[in-house]
Design a protein around this nucleic acid. Structure first.
Lengths: 204, 204
DNA sequence: GTATCCTGACTGACCAGTCAATCGACTTTG
DNA sequence: CAAAGTCGATTGACTGGTCAGTCAGGATAC
């Protein structure tokens, strides 16, 4: 409860914009302070380092996503719908705040060096959550059990991330209708594959 | 044609090791020179900047891969075999030189900021090549034509990259047998999906 | 003799993080 | 009610260190 504005929040929001625009490594802390309309030193009053700002941004959002995945897993829905719910959450996150998602994906999730390592465990939790959905569907005989659940989860998450990366690079307008279509395509791709559903059985 | 050793090559090889170990942003040019057993200045005799070293590394390898994709596309093979050939090329590249592949993936392919942008077009060429394979299979009625070929290509490449990223992070031994198994899993996943092949038809 | 290879000390710029000082809202006390 | 005191919020100049790229000159090959 602050008087008028929570400067910590202002700095965080400014950092999202700056990281999205210039990239974490390329921007200076001064850029963040300027963007926030705040003195340089104040950044260090609220955060111990530039890294910690990125950490905070990532962890806050990622935990929400882990919650969404767990919720989808727990719901009484057919597996396709569960996967759709997860894809939906991530894609809508992008629609709602493309800059934040850009930062998370570009600077953390896909940045194997500094932060990828730090947050590996957290990132894996997401895979594991999706794998749970797959495993449950396999137990119900709806998904093929020869497929490793973790592998399927990686395919699913990898595809979602690939789609977002394309949008991020292209600065696509991403109309709601297209987002909806892509959700369907993702689920369709992961569940059904590209192959024509056995017009003639060929292999086992 | 140099007397005994091509120092340019030595520097390039040293850079691979250093980039793989410390990351592009974190390492200093001096580290590369030391690793190569060469004076600092010589690096600048052969390369105009630190970036150019990474560029060279990436482009050399990527062009070989584009060739491999084109070759697979042109071959007289069923689409599954073509996709397997592409997955095989990439996975074997990793087996042959994990450090180089780590650098390419971590510092270029997945690094959306600096280099991703520079080499976007080149990276897209790979997607396009894979999409060609898919498109051809669709024309032959072997792949479902509702799936966008470029989308399928992204799913395929995204999965391969995801697998490599996991190996890179985990420093997995990656036994030849496991590599072989993963190739099959990738093709199986992309072609057949996770779903049980229609035990009862449900939707269109 | 000259062109190319090679050396490593040096420079100029950059920037994360520190810190001493000021501000201002709120409390305590006389 | 005002003076004095308290403490977090806020400021921005400054420091210490880092490092990419330069350059003047020495070695080597032909």
């Amino acid at each position: 409860m602050t008087t008028v504005v929570d400067k910590r929040r202002v700095i965080l929001a400014a950092a999202v914009r700056v990281f999205a625009r210039q990239g974490f490594h390329t921007c200076r802390v001064a850029d963040i302070a300027d963007e926030a309309g705040v003195a340089y030193g104040l950044v260090y009053h609220y955060f111990s380092s530039k890294e910690q700002i990125l950490d905070t941004l990532f962890l806050e959002r990622w935990d929400v996503m882990l919650g969404a995945i767990a919720e989808a897993d727990g719901a009484a829905l057919p597996p396709r719908e569960k996967l759709r719910a997860v894809a939906s959450f991530i894609l809508e996150s992008y629609r709602h705040d493309p800059e934040l998602m850009k930062v998370i994906i570009v600077e953390v999730t896909r940045a194997a060096n500094t932060f990828g390592r730090t947050h590996l465990a957290k990132i894996r939790e997401a895979y594991a959550g999706i794998a749970n959905i797959v495993r449950r569907a396999q137990q119900d005989g709806l998904f093929r059990s020869e497929v490793d659940a973790m592998f399927a989860a990686q395919a699913f998450y990898g595809l979602v991330e690939q789609v977002l990366t394309t949008w991020i690079f292209e600065d696509r307008p991403t109309a709601p209708a297209e987002i909806e279509r892509v959700k369907t395509e993702i689920v369709e791709m992961i569940c059904g594959g590209v192959e024509q559903p056995s017009p003639r059985r060929q292999a086992a």
